[in-house]
Design a protein around this nucleic acid. Structure first.
Length: 423
DNA sequence: TCTGGGGTCCTAGGACCC
DNA sequence: TCTGGGGTCCTAGGACCC
């Protein structure tokens, strides 16, 4: 069996830990620029505020019902998330953090204890020590855990925060009740397709022939029906390194001038390279996109994106900046009101492979002295024993040309041993 | 006036190679 | 007019998740 621990109205619950007077009151948390509602308390949901609602449309309602609203504080949320995870994981051997407010626990092998009582204890401990209320759904597969969790949330009086779905009878009852669109992995498009074919409840999907499911949903669908039947298809994933990094923003006001948009896009590129360096990886692909305001039907719409595969992996802000600029030049068109843009980097390799790429990119032979120095160090200490350290406090050469140390270094053509790391 | 910001995975098709 | 069979890499787009 697996258990899914899911924090209730997570961002709102975090805000409540700072201010207990928010208990039992309608509260919402808003996204960047206070644009959208990204978390709602139960009271706010009861007022009919939908998820992702644009805040400006509900200003009047907020005022009328005295809804407290907060700008998102992601540092706080990350911190509280860690606390919850620490407690929950201490009860099991294997677990998977699925998102900022959810984690799966592996209860396989817990044969001689009462899983319900065990999870209730986890829940109470989290509540007591972090003040974050959680719901726990227990079932044989991840997909069914999601269902069980949903049941806990929909019937709070009945289940006291924990529901265990451990018999075929319970599973059937749940699936006959659950709308197809609420199944994990079925989104808006598929819901419409399903309804067209007479599938309204999760249970209905299981009555369809496997070939049909395969055709409509692809390989995903086959896995899903098995999961719903209680046959495990999805294992717990160990935390894996990221596969892409995206920095995208909507602008406060629409931008028409090329240089204004360029400036933002360049900044996004810088953030990407910073994050790459933080996790000691380099990327092989860079994507830039721009788009106009999709809600302004009165203005011409334009959106475009372009990807470049780099000849060599890098995390240098200079090289990435250059690529970002190149792509931006290719996709930017004059005469549109731009509202959103972003840079995405992906296809990562470990940072060790970066130096080579830097030298290969070195068209002006700026780094020739460095290569010579590297050679000398290699001879002296043996290959693979030395590595270039940071030149300027920045963990990359790409930036180094901005630093006085680096300029001095280029002038004198000297590199001291202090610039090297040994391992 | 004001409409988020991350991520993952899958598929199909084109270009190119042998 | 007929018109291989693989393979890889890359791109674009769609669908989903929180």
């Amino acid at each position: 069996m697996y258990a899914l621990v899911d924090c209730n109205n997570f961002f709102v619950s975090c805000e409540r830990t700072l201010d207990s007077s928010l208990e039992n009151k309608p509260v919402v948390v808003l996204s960047n620029n206070d644009g959208c509602v990204v978390s709602r308390s139960k009271e706010a949901k009861d007022l009919g505020i939908p998820m992702a609602a644009p805040a400006f449309k509900y200003k009047e309602l907020f005022r009328k019902y005295d809804v407290k609203s907060f700008s998102a504080k992601f540092e706080l949320y990350n911190f509280k998330s860690q606390q919850v995870i620490e407690i929950a994981r201490s009860y099991v051997l294997e677990y998977e953090t699925y998102s900022i407010d959810e984690l799966f626990l592996d209860l396989t092998g817990f044969k001689y204890i009462n899983l319900y009582d065990y999870c209730l204890e986890i829940r109470n401990k989290i509540q007591k020590e972090t003040s974050i209320p959680v719901s726990i759904g227990i079932a044989p597969t991840k997909t069914l855990c999601k269902v069980a969790n949903r049941i806990v949330k929909d019937f709070p009086e009945k289940f006291n925060g924990v529901y265990i779905m451990d018999t075929p009878e319970k599973i059937e009852k749940a699936l006959r009740w659950l709308n197809i669109g609420d199944v994990w992995g079925i989104g808006r498009k598929l819901t419409a397709k399903m309804n067209d074919s007479g599938v309204y409840k999760a249970w209905d999907l299981l009555q369809k022939p496997e070939m049909w499911v395969r055709k409509v949903m692809g390989i995903h669908g086959v896995r899903m029906i098995n999961e719903l039947k209680g046959i495990r298809q999805l294992e717990l994933d160990s935390p894996s390194p990221k596969k892409s990094i995206a920095v995208t923003r909507s602008f406060m006001e629409m931008l028409m001038k090329k240089d204004e948009v360029r400036e933002r896009v360049e900044t996004f590129g810088m953030y990407c390279s910073e994050r790459l360096r933080k996790q000691n990886t380099c990327c092989k692909m860079v994507t830039v996109f721009v788009q106009t305001n999709r809600f302004r039907k009165d203005l011409p719409e334009y959106r475009n994106a372009m990807t470049k595969v780099l000849p060599n992996p890098t995390n240098s802000s200079i090289i990435i900046g250059r690529v970002v600029n190149e792509l931006f030049e290719a996709i930017f068109k004059e005469g549109f009101h731009y509202k959103k843009a972003g840079v995405i980097v992906n296809d990562f390799v470990p940072e060790d492979q970066r130096l080579i790429s830097l030298f290969e990119e070195d068209t002006q032979n700026q780094h020739l002295p460095v290569m010579k120095a590297m050679d000398a160090m290699n001879k002296k200490y043996g290959k693979d024993k030395v590595r270039l350290g940071s030149m300027s406090g920045e963990n990359t050469f790409g930036r180094a040309q901005l630093s006085p140390e680096y300029e001095a270094f280029l002038k004198n053509n000297t590199l001291t041993e202090a610039n090297f790391r040994f391992h």
